[in-house]
């Protein structure tokens, strides 16, 4: 079997400050950051990345938390394991879509060790959390040599496995604003085999106006069908301000499928992935709408 066959220096900072200092000490080419390592270790075993320094931040328990406040919303430390997000009662209550997403993310073993921040920072276009967070209008907190900044989750992933993180920066917190009233959120991904990477995924957040008839706001995020998770804005425009019907959702699905830019690989063609987007948007829409009505 494949092991890591090259040597590296292992650094385990105790605090965030220490970690940031270490990050700035080595240039990007020679160091890598490991959190849960559920993806990174595989790449290292394949010799696809061969860092000289490995900075292990998994032990930074300061970044392992889930906090909720009716005003500020939800704050999740970047090193919180998936499983904690999945099982958190407050998340199940306030942001059940996050918990649902986690339930079908890979397998229990991965969720027990892998972190939500690591997942987002790995920036796999098929990663699930990013898609849901975009629909939830989440922001990400980044800490770096020049202090901290926040940015929209939507802008974080820029290409296949590439993020907006600057050299020396770490993703430290995920911030999810409180859901507006009358909002329903739903996420779904399609994979032939359960627990697999999705061929396509869709998250949708629908906010209805006071009388719960027209759609006052909507966010649609697509995963696995572009170099990064994307927002389907044209599809959103179709729904915004309208009374949502099945026909309208189908129209939005069509629009979203045109906004996607999937590639063909051995699992599916781009044509089929577009079809998935079309169908999933419609289906997710129905459920998000039902939730919004119940909310």
């Amino acid at each position: 079997m494949k092991n890591i066959i090259f040597d590296f220096e292992y650094l385990a900072p105790k605090t965030l400050e220490e970690a940031l200092t270490m990050l700035s000490q080595y240039n990007e080419e020679e160091r890598k950051v490991i959190a849960g390592g559920q993806s990174l270790l595989i790449l290292m075993r394949q010799k696809l990345i061969t860092p000289q320094y490995l900075i292990d931040i998994k032990g930074l328990s300061d970044l392992e938390y889930i906090k909720f406040d009716k005003k500020e919303g939800l704050k999740i430390g970047a090193l919180t394991i998936h499983r904690a997000v999945e099982l958190s009662p407050i998340i199940q209550k306030e942001f059940s879509v996050l918990s649902e997403m986690e339930q079908n993310l890979s397998n229990v073993e991965t969720r027990n060790w892998g972190t939500i921040g690591g997942d987002i920072a790995h920036a796999d276009p098929c990663g699930d959390p990013a898609v849901v967070l975009i629909a939830l209008n989440a922001r990400l907190k980044l800490n770096g040599p020049s202090g901290e900044r926040t940015m929209d989750a939507e802008d974080f992933t820029v290409d296949f496995f590439e993020t907006a993180l600057q050299p020396g920066e770490l993703l430290t917190e995920i911030q999810v604003p409180v859901l507006p009233p009358n909002t329903g959120v739903k996420f779904t991904k399609y994979n032939q085999i359960s627990g697999d990477l999705g061929l396509a995924s869709v998250a949708m957040s629908i906010t209805l106006d006071k009388d719960k008839k027209t759609c006052s706001d909507v966010r649609i995020a697509l995963g696995g069908v572009a170099p990064a998770p994307i927002r389907a804005k044209k599809a959103e425009d179709i729904l915004k301000g309208k009374k949502i019907s099945d026909a309208l959702l189908a129209e939005a699905g069509q629009a979203a499928s045109e906004e996607a830019s999937p590639t063909t690989d051995i699992q599916a063609t781009d044509e089929y992935r577009r079809e998935l987007v079309k169908v999933l948007v419609k289906r997710v829409g129905v459920e998000a709408l039902a939730r919004a009505k119940k909310a």
């Binding site: 032939q192 085999i193 359960s194 627990g195 697999d196 990477l197 051995i266 699992q267």
Partner: peptide, 23 residues
């Protein structure tokens, strides 16, 4: 096991799909 010029394109359990217990 699709191949391209004699090369197997999915030589891992990530890309080679085997039915898991849920299915």
């Amino acid at each position: 096991q699709p191949t391209d010029n004699g090369m197997v394109l999915n030589p891992s359990f990530a890309d080679y799909k085997i039915i898991r217990t849920r299915d």
